[in-house]
Structure formats: structure tokens, C-alpha cells
């Protein structure tokens, strides 16, 4: 079920340092395409083809992005968003894995909880924010709750499905050797389920960021989601686009980091 992976696995032949063309390989045209799009953006804004207060030239956006590096609001907002996303992600994942395994192994719990989980699962997270505000207010409790909720479902679903596919003979063998219940879980079930859990966790990373931004847009007073809206009101589209840029870089970095960790920690991933 590895779904949100990479576009790699393409025959990117390692080429010796040489001309740009050789180093980029087939991607040269892709990079040129992006350059062309950005150039068009720049020109359309400078020459006034698109007249809008919210269509700044690319160079202005880049300048705004660079000037933030010396310690601006964007980085502070980004840090707040990441802190929330990470906290919510951690809570949602732990609950997702724990309930996924427990429900996968215990029939009683399955009967008690699965229907409830399946009822709540299809609600798109933004829809629960308005009612939750009335109970949780608009602060971290709300945002972290929403992020945990969004994270929980893919992790739970994948873990649950993963546990179901654990080879019964493995468990039987463990039982024959009188391995304790906890040890079986830790040494047999968990490793066999890890690839599935990892796939769920990866889907959840992008969801966590999406929902963090959403909750800040709907009920924010800090964080990058709020910043985006605030900059619209402050007539600073350059900063708004710059914030989107930083967010894109963050998303990219998170995905990369995840792949590296996955390769390190679960070397048997994708070999089943």
C-alpha cells in the first residue's frame, strides 16, 4: 500500500560532473519549463498583462523570501505550524498504531470500536472545526486535536489492515515457543506490520500539514495559515507567496526525511 512515495526509481544514471546538461540529465527540459513559467509570471506582472494587487513579480517574491531569512514573521509562523503539526501527528500516530494493533488482535475491541471509528472516519476534518471551536476554543487544543484526528485515520486503517495480513504461522510458531503475548506483539506482529504502518504514516504526514494550515486559516492567530490570510489583509502578496514557498520547501524536506528514515529503519520495506 505504499502510495505517497516518490517519483524515483527512474533510470537516473549517475553522471560525472560535467556540463549542466549532463548533470541534469533528462530533467534539463523540466528545469527549463519551470524557468519559462517563472519568466512568464515575471513579465506578465512587470508589463501589466495581469493587473492585480495580488500578482507581484517573481523577483519581488524571491526578495521577500530572502529578506525573511534574517529572522522574519514567516519563519516564526512556520515554526508554530510545525510544532502543532508535529504534536498532533505524534498523538494521532500513536493512537492509530495502538488501536490498529489492538483492534486487529482483539475481537471484543473490534466489535466495540470499529463501527464508531468507521462512522467518524469519512468526515472531512475542516467540517469538525466549527463545532470544535465551541468546546475547545481556538487555541492549540483545537488545532492539535484536528491534526491528530486527521492523522489517526490513515495510520489506523493501514495498521489494522497490516495486522490482518500477518502470517498466522508466525504467531503459531511464537505460541509454540511459549513466547509471551507482549513479546510476540513486539517481535513478531510489529515488525511484520511495519511496512503497512509506515505507508499510513507517510500519508498522514501530508495530511497533518494540510490540516494544520486549515485550522490556522479558519481559527488562527498564529502560524503560517493565519499568516497567509493576514498578509492578504495587509496588502502584502509578496510575503504571502513567499510563505507558500517556505511551506513547499518544508513539505519537500519532510517527505525526504521520511524516506530516509524509512530506508534506515525498515530495510525490509517493499520486499514483501
Amino acid at each position: 500500500m505504499s502510495v505517497v512515495g516518490t517519483l524515483e526509481g527512474a533510470s537516473s544514471k549517475p553522471s560525472a560532473a560535467g556540463s549542466i546538461r549532463r548533470r541534469l540529465g533528462p530533467r534539463l527540459y523540466g528545469v527549463l519549463l519551470i524557468a519559462a513559467i517563472l519568466l512568464f509570471w515575471e513579465v506578465s506582472s512587470r508589463l501589466g498583462w495581469i493587473v492585480s494587487a495580488y500578482w507581484p513579480p517573481v523577483t519581488k517574491i524571491l526578495w521577500a523570501a530572502i529578506s525573511q531569512l534574517g529572522g522574519g514573521d514567516i519563519l516564526v509562523s512556520l515554526a508554530a505550524t510545525l510544532r502543532r503539526a508535529l504534536t498532533g501527528y505524534a498523538i494521532g500516530s500513536v493512537l492509530g498504531i495502538a488501536l490498529g494493533i489492538l483492534l486487529g488482535k482483539s475481537k471484543v475491541l473490534r466489535i466495540a470500536l470499529l463501527p464508531l471509528i468507521e462512522i467518524v472516519r469519512p468526515i472531512p476534518t475542516p467540517a469538525v472545526i466549527p463545532p470544535l471551536i465551541l468546546f475547545l476554543g481556538v487555541d492549540d487544543a483545537l488545532k492539535i486535536f484536528a491534526i491528530s484526528l486527521a492523522t489517526f485515520f490513515p495510520v489506523f486503517t493501514n495498521t489494522f489492515a497490516g495486522v490482518a495480513t500477518v502470517d498466522d504461522t508466525l504467531i503459531q510458531t511464537a505460541r509454540t515457543f511459549r513466547t509471551s503475548w507482549a513479546r510476540t506483539l513486539l517481535r513478531v506482529v510489529l515488525p511484520a506490520t511495519l511496512p503497512a504502518i509506515a505507508a499510513g504514516l507517510r500519508t498522514a504526514t501530508s495530511l497533518a500539514l494540510v490540516v494544520a494550515v486549515v485550522s490556522e486559516m479558519v481559527a488562527g492567530s498564529s502560524g503560517i495559515g493565519y499568516y497567509l490570510v493576514e498578509m492578504q489583509y495587509a496588502l502584502r502578496p509578496d510575503l504571502m507567496y513567499a510563505a507558500v514557498m517556505y511551506l513547499a520547501i518544508t513539505g519537500y524536506a519532510v517527505n525526504r526525511l521520511f524516506l530516509v528514515l524509512e530506508a534506515r529503519l525498515i530495510p525490509w520495506m517493499g520486499k514483501t
Partner: peptide
């Protein structure tokens, strides 16, 4: 590929 890699990681809500 480069274009997809740039657009993909942006949280779409933003």
C-alpha cells in the same frame, strides 16, 4: 518531474 516535485509537497490548503 521537476514541476511535479515542486508542486506536490505544498500543503494544498495553503
Amino acid at each position: 518531474e521537476p514541476l511535479v516535485e515542486i508542486l506536490r509537497p505544498i500543503p494544498k490548503s495553503a
